[in-house]
Amino acid sequence: MLYSGSEASDIYSAICVAATVLVPGCDRASVMLRRGDKHSTVAATDDVAQRIDEFERRLGQGPCVDAIADARPQIDTDLRGHSTWPELARAIVETTPVRGVMGFRLLIDERKAGALNLFSDTPGAFDAAAAGAASVLASFTSVTITAISRGDDVESLRNGLASNREIGQAIGLLMAMENISSDEAFDVLRRTSQEVNLKIADLARALVSSHASGKTE
């Protein structure tokens, strides 16, 4: 799905659709990128997701905006209660069916570039499993937008899919097992690969394989 399009806009749209398929409880999604001092939505599943992004930009608060600045995922499972973003929560609840939100930072060559934004119409739907799946998708998305920014063609993205999938899975596993951010998980992979003189993709493959067999240490 991610690499079936021929244009960057097609790939961004596919990422949003993938979120609704792969992340439990996700009904809508958007990708917001920072360009200079401004944030812009480059893809969204529908007008509701687009509108919430607009709320965030206007209010200067929310999971998407905060995710760009902070490595840790930004999550509010029920906007009807006490929210970290009270003005945004009020606007969302009053004008949309969305009740839960998540934001995950996206990187281009380790630079803060944007956020993957996920929305649920069901209060409490965004649990640990949903956050884990979203973190893997966010890792894929960071790889994708980095390749696009470098001018890589879609065929290059397809060729790198296998190793990227394993790295994303390994990052998700480390985040869950060690309760760390995606940046910290990738740094663990990077440092360990240097220490054992093994490519990151090969190390990720070994980690995912050992976890599947119940031997992860």
Rank of each mutant, 00 (worst) to 15 (best):
V23Y: 13
V23A: 01
V23M: 06
P24K: 01
D27M: 01
R28H: 15
M32P: 09
R34F: 12
D37S: 10
D37M: 08
D37C: 13
K38T: 07
K38I: 12
S40F: 11
V42I: 08
A43N: 06
V48R: 13
V48H: 11
I52R: 01
D53Y: 12
E54V: 15
E54G: 02
R57H: 14
R58F: 07
G60D: 09
C64R: 04
V65W: 10
A67T: 05
A67H: 10
D70H: 15
D70W: 13
A71K: 13
A71Y: 14
R72E: 12
P73M: 13
P73C: 03
G81V: 07
G81A: 13
H82M: 15
H82L: 10
S83Q: 02
T84F: 05
E87F: 04
A89Q: 03
A89P: 01
A89M: 06
A89V: 12
R90A: 03
I92N: 01
V93T: 10
E94C: 13
T96C: 06
V98M: 00
G100H: 06
G100W: 01
M102F: 06
M102L: 02
G103A: 00
L106D: 00
L107Y: 14
I108G: 01
D109S: 04
D109A: 08
R111G: 07
K112V: 08
K112W: 05
A115R: 06
A115F: 15
L116Q: 00
L116G: 02
L116W: 00
L116I: 03
N117T: 08
L118Y: 08
S120H: 15
S120G: 04
T122A: 09
P123L: 15
G124P: 00
G124T: 04
A125V: 04
F126W: 04
A128L: 12
A130N: 06
A131E: 14
A131K: 12
A131H: 10
G132Y: 02
A134L: 08
S135F: 00
V136T: 12
V136W: 07
V136A: 10
A138S: 11
F140V: 11
